[in-house]
């Protein structure tokens, strides 16, 4: 299991894509928003948590099609299907690898990028905390979407269409918790609900995703 994780991480590093690209994309989105909205720091500070959340979500989406695609092409996925490790475990590991190379860097960089959007002091913390709790769900849901489209030649666009609606609850609770936190309001409820979604996704979606992969390998 750990070998699989390390292998996935190595591949992601070597391919050069996932790691840097998602982060760069996130930075560009954050930079573009003030150009579109205008430089007033009041407005920017108010919408900053939402912008950071949407940016992180899109950056996460960017690398999803590679979760299973490469393994499908070179036949590793067939090996995994027959390996002693249950498919559900393999899927969870792959989602974890995706989170480590996309979700975690996004989470770590979000407080820094928040400065660009004039987010004030408690806001940094809350953006960081909500992304830390929320991005694992994004990776897991994304892995499910990638499992559905793994057999398709050009599944990228379809993948976004399938996955984005599934991101809605996480986005709503995450952005709400971050916004309330930044404004100094009570935000335990959305935080707890988002944590619940993350926990539920991690517990249940590996089963759905591995079912989809088995169908695709048939």
């Amino acid at each position: 299991m750990i070998a699989l994780l390390i292998r996935d991480l190595k591949l992601a590093m070597r391919a050069g894509g996932g790691f840097g690209l998602g982060l760069a994309f996130f930075l560009i989105v954050t930079v573009l928003v003030p150009f579109g909205v205008g430089p007033e720091s009041q407005i920017l500070a108010r919408i900053a948590p939402g912008i950071l959340w949407v940016g992180a979500l899109l950056a996460c989406l960017l690398s999803l099609d590679r979760v299973f695609q490469l393994d499908h092409e070179d036949g590793t996925l067939d090996l995994l299907a027959t390996a002693p490790l249950p498919m559900e475990g393999a899927v969870a590991i792959k989602a974890l690898a995706h989170w480590l190379v996309t979700g975690l860097p996004l989470t770590l960089s979000a407080p820094i990028f928040a400065t660009l959007l004039n987010l004030q002091s408690p806001g940094h913390l809350w953006v960081f905390v909500t992304l830390l709790i929320g991005t694992p769900a994004l990776s897991m849901i994304g892995a499910f979407g990638a499992a559905l489209t793994v057999g398709l030649k050009r599944g990228g666009l379809l993948l976004s269409l399938l996955v984005l609606p599934l991101y809605i609850p996480t986005l709503i609770f995450g952005a709400e918790a971050a916004t309330r936190g930044a404004a100094g309001l009570e935000n335990a409820t959305p935080l707890a609900l988002m944590a619940g979604i993350t926990a539920g996704a991690i517990a249940l979606l590996p089963f759905a995703a591995s079912a989809a992969i088995r169908v695709n390998l048939r």
Partner: peptide, 19 residues
């Protein structure tokens, strides 16, 4: 499978949106 998972998330969205 998508319909199944989608239904769960559609229901979640319903409550999230309410909130």
């Amino acid at each position: 499978v998508l319909c199944l998972v989608g239904s769960v998330f559609a229901l979640l969205s319903r409550y999230a949106v309410n909130f």
